[in-house]
Design a protein around this nucleic acid. Structure first.
Lengths: 325, 325
DNA sequence: GTAATAGTGTCTTTCAGACAGTATGAC
DNA sequence: GTCATACTGTCTGAAAGACACTATTAC
């Protein structure tokens, strides 16, 4: 109870945008040969009145970003999930680090935003982009490897702890095998499953084992536990899209409905049914026509803007989003 | 960046159950004349491998509860929102406290659970129980006081910051005035509004002003920021009920459908439509008949149990919950 | 004309919400 | 029988999901 080990609170920002139909996230390298990391820093209660203000400070200082929409994601505190790489620096004398993840949404402005440090998100999560077709990496690499990992543990007989899911059940539930649907919101659950199965680099790094040469290293690894925070962020925004008009935080003042649909698809990783999408957006009162038009390619598209009033009209205005099309 | 003020992480548990059609929460007094507080304590990374394990320890030590279902709610870090009462103890030399709130759900067992420290939840939130009828306190006290508070600030002309809601808009949106619906999930938003308006005791306590004699003190106050954490918990579970079968964490092994509906109504604070509720629960595959019956009062009721398999069949099995009935 | 992109009309199925009824026990 | 509680059948209207179709530009 007394003489507590010092604790450091780390604030980490996932700053997300959509650029050229790809979700992107601000990340920069912390040094040569080191993986990419998100803007982050220690919470300092003397200088920051609230956690969120501290976070905004780091985004400003490290990325030059003046954040607008910010929401807290989750607080992670497990020991040994925050190594930058395999170096043995997180000894027991060092302060324990608790990290609080935040999600910020932003637009990419033609000039104002420095675009170079916005990295495509799906390079770290190639199994999450289902827009073209079912990702090949799933059937080629992930599911076979997970099947082997599941068979390793033949403790699955009976059900010792009623509520703990077996490896097989976790795979089926989160990756949508055995006839179950693939739920695009379960991004974190899938990442954690791959971590536990040793199929992402962070897994062997945290366990201080050299990665076996044959082992899979799915997707691009990140520093510390940043990829886990990123997975939390992607899962959260995919869910939130459905009941809050957060997508407009990433849209310019005016846009076409196709633009809007493309950005929603980029985030949710799914193709949407065009007619239903338009109906939802228009009859839901989320947008209004500006009267203007674009002229790129074929038929000119009508321009729309976000109807801010919807926020004060309906309790949960979002894009209920059905699949495909 | 260096010589940081010491930080303490406080873990706080909202342990919720339903007893005799009332939602209850574990809370105990910290001393004579002190308000009730939730089980809580400082996170100690030496003894606790994860935050959640630390929390479970405090619940065990302070309440004798062996928690089952636990989920993280939110991490609060604003300065000055955690005084136990108006005593001037939270000076600037003291460690800054960041508190992480958790929600745990439990059953009340006839003998095993010590029932005495489970306090009815709605005594702290009398405006949240809409089961009988619209709570009288709303029209008698809350809305008139909020209207006065709103009129105080006539800065509402124009819209200086596009995204900041005016007092009037916050009231309408969160309390469902001006024709808007009352959204039962916005428990935290309502509490924060009352806090800002000085209508709950914690507001004047944190501002170190003696409460004016005439001022409202709505609902029973709690120690520190525990009522805020409780509001977060109630809002969260009201939402979660709709897409996760969490209610069964609070049900005994077997129960009647009326029992189940009563407990859901207790949490959500709304009356539900009986036929639709039954249809939802049965066609949703959430329960299965045990074949047994009860015999209390009128016609015997069939007994049901939770169909655990639903967890591995559908992605989001919940009680979509329509109103009234 | 063709290619490309934008936008519409309408049908079907599902399901939430509500009506009013019937069933089985205690007394 | 009455009272109390448990349970069911069925209608309606909204809206999700999908079909195929038309419109306007550039070339």
């Amino acid at each position: 109870m007394t003489s507590l080990q010092p604790i450091e609170i780390n604030l980490t920002a996932v700053v997300m945008a959509v650029h050229q139909d790809q979700p992107v996230v601000y990340a920069s390298s912390l040094g040569d040969n080191l993986p990419l990391g998100l803007p982050s820093g220690p919470f300092d209660p003397v200088n920051h009145r609230t956690l969120e203000l501290g976070l905004r400070g780091f985004a400003q200082d490290q990325a030059g970003l003046d954040l607008d929409y910010v929401e807290q994601l989750y607080t992670f505190g497990d020991r040994g999930r925050n190594l930058i790489d395999a170096s043995p620096s997180d000894g027991f004398g060092a302060p324990h680090i608790v990290s609080i993840g935040y999600l910020a949404l932003t637009r990419i402005f033609p000039g104002a935003t420095e675009r170079t440090n916005f990295q495509p998100l799906y390079t770290s999560f190639p199994w999450e982009d289902w827009r073209g077709s079912r990702p090949a990496v799933l059937d080629r690499d992930i599911l076979p490897a997970l099947a082997r990992w599941s068979e390793e543990a033949e403790t699955d007989t009976g059900n010792p702890d009623r509520r703990a899911l077996s490896r097989r059940e976790r795979i089926a539930l989160h990756f949508g095998t055995e006839g179950l649907p693939f739920d695009e919101e379960k991004v974190l659950e899938r990442y954690e499953l791959l971590y536990d199965a040793g199929l992402v680099e962070e897994g062997s790094r945290d366990r201080r084992k050299p990665t076996p040469v044959a082992a899979l290293k799915l997707g691009k690894a990140m520093a510390f536990d940043h990829r886990r925070i990123l997975a939390t962020a992607l899962g959260r925004i995919r869910g939130k899209l459905k009941y809050r008009p957060v997508i407009f935080e990433m849209m310019p003042e005016s846009f076409t409905l196709t633009d809007l649909q493309r950005k929603v698809e980029a985030i949710s990783g799914q193709h949407l049914h065009k007619q239903n999408f338009r109906r939802l957006v228009e009859t839901g009162g989320l947008v209004e026509s500006t009267g203007e038009q674009t002229n790129t390619g074929g038929r000119p598209a009508a321009l729309f803007r976000f109807r801010r009033e919807v926020l004060t009209e309906r309790p949960a205005p979002g894009l209920r989003l059905g699949r495909s099309g």
